[in-house]
C-alpha cells in the first residue's frame, strides 16, 4: 500500500512541471499586454513611461528567461507580485482562498446532505413516485444554466422578498461567521443545486447494488427491521463509494465556481482568476493554475488510494 502511494505521488511532480510550461508559454502568446491593459483608452494617457515600466518588470526579456526567473522564485517560495495591482500573490491567495473554501464547503455539505438523502429515498422504492421526483429534480438542477438560476433567486429572495443580501461576502457590521451567513445562503445553494445529480445517482446506484447482495437477504431473513437493514447494513456498505465521489469534489474547494462568484460578486479565487486572465497578469495566472492543478492531483490521488483501500485488487494491478 505504501509503495503504491509513493509511486502515485511521484508522478505528480513532472506533471506539474509540464503544466507550468504549457500555461506559461500559452499566456505569453496571448496578445493582451498587462501594462497597457491597466490604462483604459477612455482616458488620455502618456504612454512613454509605460515602456519604461515594461522594461523594469522584465516583460521585454526572452520568454525562457522570464520562465526561468519565475520557476526559480517559486522554488524559493516567492510567488511574486501581481502586475496589475502590485500585491504579493501570497497575500491575494490569503484573501481570496478562504472565501472560496467557505462557499464551496457549504455547497458541498448542502449538496451531500440533500443528494445522499434523495439518493436513499430513491433507493428505498426504485421506480416509485418519490424516486422519479428526486431523480428528475436532480436532472433539472444540472440543466438550468447556473448564472440564470442565480439571477432568478437573487430576484426572488433578495430583491422581491428582501430576505437575503444581493451579493458580497462581508457586510460592514458583520463580525462573526453567523453575521455573514445570510450572504452565503444564495450562492452556496446555487452552487449546490448543480452538484446534486451526480451524488444522488451515485448513492442510488450503490445502494441498489448493495441491497441486491446476499448478506442483505440474510439480514432480512433474520427478521431485522427493514429500516435497520437499510441504514446499518446497506448504507454503511455503500458509504465507501460515496466517499470516492466526494474526493473528486475536493478541487472545487479551491476552484469554486467562477460563474457563481461572478453572479454573487463573491470575492473568491475564481474572481481573481477571471480578472488575471483578462488582463494577462501572468504571475497570478501561473500560481492559481498550479494551485488548482495540485488540488486536482491530490484529489485524484485520494480517489485512487481510497479505491485501492476499498478494493484490494486495484493495488495489485
Amino acid at each position: 500500500m505504501l509503495k503504491y502511494i509513493i509511486r502515485k505521488s511521484l508522478v505528480t511532480i513532472p506533471m506539474l512541471f509540464v503544466i507550468s510550461i504549457i500555461v506559461f508559454f500559452a499566456i505569453q502568446l496571448s496578445p493582451i499586454d498587462p501594462i497597457s491593459y491597466s490604462a483604459s483608452p477612455d482616458v488620455a494617457v502618456d504612454s512613454e513611461n509605460l515602456e519604461a515600466l515594461r522594461e523594469h518588470l522584465g516583460l521585454n526579456d526572452p520568454l525562457y528567461i522570464q520562465y526561468y526567473h519565475w520557476i526559480i522564485a517559486v522554488f524559493k517560495g516567492d510567488f511574486g507580485y501581481s502586475i496589475i495591482t502590485g500585491q504579493p500573490i501570497a497575500k491575494i491567495l490569503a484573501l481570496k482562498l478562504p472565501a472560496t473554501i467557505e462557499l464551496s464547503l457549504l455547497a458541498l455539505v448542502i449538496s451531500t446532505i440533500i443528494g445522499v438523502a434523495m439518493g436513499l429515498v430513491s433507493a428505498i422504492k426504485p421506480n416509485s413516485m418519490s424516486d422519479y421526483f428526486s431523480r428528475n429534480v436532480a436532472v433539472l438542477g444540472i440543466s438550468i444554466p447556473e448564472f440564470f438560476f442565480g439571477i432568478i433567486i437573487i430576484q426572488i429572495f433578495a430583491i422581491q422578498l428582501g430576505w437575503l443580501p444581493i451579493s458580497g461576502r462581508i457586510g460592514v457590521n458583520d463580525v462573526t461567521f453567523w453575521d455573514r451567513l445570510p450572504n452565503l445562503i444564495l450562492p452556496s445553494f446555487t452552487l449546490a443545486i448543480g452538484m446534486l445529480a451526480v451524488l444522488l445517482r451515485y448513492t442510488r446506484n450503490s445502494m441498489l447494488d448493495v441491497l441486491s447482495k446476499d448478506y442483505i437477504k440474510t439480514a432480512r431473513s433474520k427478521g431485522i427491521p427493514e429500516w435497520k437493514v437499510f441504514i446499518f447494513h446497506a448504507f454503511r456498505n455503500s458509504l465507501g463509494s460515496i466517499l470516492v465521489i466526494l474526493a473528486f469534489r475536493l478541487p472545487m474547494l479551491i476552484g469554486g465556481s467562477v460563474i457563481i462568484e461572478m453572479v454573487f460578486m463573491w470575492p473568491g479565487i475564481g474572481n481573481a482568476i477571471i480578472s488575471a486572465v483578462s488582463s494577462s497578469d501572468y504571475p497570478v495566472i501561473m500560481i492559481t493554475t498550479m494551485m488548482l492543478a495540485s488540488a486536482i492531483l491530490v484529489a485524484s490521488f485520494l480517489v485512487d488510494v481510497l479505491s485501492a483501500f476499498l478494493d484490494p485488487r486495484i493495488r495489485l494491478e
Binding site: 500559452a26 478541487p251 495566472i285 493554475t289 492543478a293 486536482i296 485524484s300
Partner: peptide
C-alpha cells in the same frame, strides 16, 4: 484532466 479546465478554456 489535471489542467484546470477553466483556465485552459480562458487562455
Amino acid at each position: 484532466m489535471t489542467f484546470p479546465q477553466l483556465i485552459l478554456v480562458l487562455v
